[in-house]
Write a protein that binds this DNA or RNA. Structure first.
Length: 223
DNA sequence: GCCCAGGTGGGTA
DNA sequence: TACCCACATGGG
């Protein structure tokens, strides 16, 4: 299997035909996106939002979150799960940003190359490649391609990546495969595809009928 | 009850 | 290097 840029472009094109251009929501400030994405780890959007807005409602600023008692933050973000990890990590990130940059603002990342910015973000405990890519791509409009479990799984089924490759290695590979101006829509539409197929596979919907785009199979490239 | 959801980091072989 | 696992909650 030799995934090609052409095939990736075709996948992106078919996804566009099926799902359309994803709505570009008003980008969150990078700090907000960072916190929101840490909260989103291993949970769903609904629970992430509960936790995120609980934080926003309780504290006027991220500075207030930064200096809040740890137990209060943990309690606040409980709906997102893993609060004992995420709470201290979020506060540590906020603290370190202030320590290193003097203020809670990540705008300076735009002045860096995407790799430098990625490395800077991932040096924080709790910020991995996916979280960093979300902040860079969604908030700062930089060319990073976030690979989450949906992207990883679907890209395997579609033959966009070698089967035996780690999530970590899939990151740069997929990033190189898609055109930079396709990252946003490809990311969101592949997730939609993943969710659709995932739901279709559940017992109550035995007829997957898969997705008419490239059949959800390992031979997709041949279709 | 059980399974899963837009990860990450630490441990083990 | 390559897996494996803990971490926690809410909804279907």
């Amino acid at each position: 299997m030799n995934p090609s840029v052409e095939f990736a472009a075709m996948v992106a094109e078919r996804l566009l035909t099926r799902y359309g251009e994803p709505e570009w929501r008003n980008p969150l400030p990078a700090i907000d996106e960072l916190v929101s994405t840490i909260l989103s780890q291993n949970t769903n959007d609904q629970n992430r939002d509960k936790a995120f807005f609980a934080l926003v409602d309780k504290y006027d600023t991220w500075e207030a979150v930064r200096v809040a008692p740890e137990a209060d933050v943990i309690e606040c973000i409980r709906p997102a799960g893993l609060g004992n990890q995420k709470g201290p990590r979020i506060q540590k990130v906020l603290n370190d940003i202030v320590a290193e940059r003097g203020k809670l603002d990540l705008g300076f990342l735009k002045e860096m190359g995407v790799e430098e910015a990625r490395n800077w973000l991932t040096h924080f405990n709790g910020v991995g490649p996916k979280t960093a890519a979300i902040v860079l791509c969604f908030s700062l409009g930089m060319p990073a391609f976030p690979v989450d479990t949906h992207i990883y799984r679907v890209s395997g089924r579609l033959g966009l990546r070698p089967e035996k490759i780690s999530v970590e290695d899939a990151h740069p590979l997929l990033e190189a495969l898609f055109a930079k101006d396709q990252y946003f829509q490809a990311h969101l539409n592949i997730i939609r595809l993943g969710r659709e197929v995932c739901q279709a596979r559940k017992p109550r919907c035995p007829d997957c009928a898969l997705v008419d785009m490239c059949k959800y199979s390992k031979n997709a490239q041949k279709l």
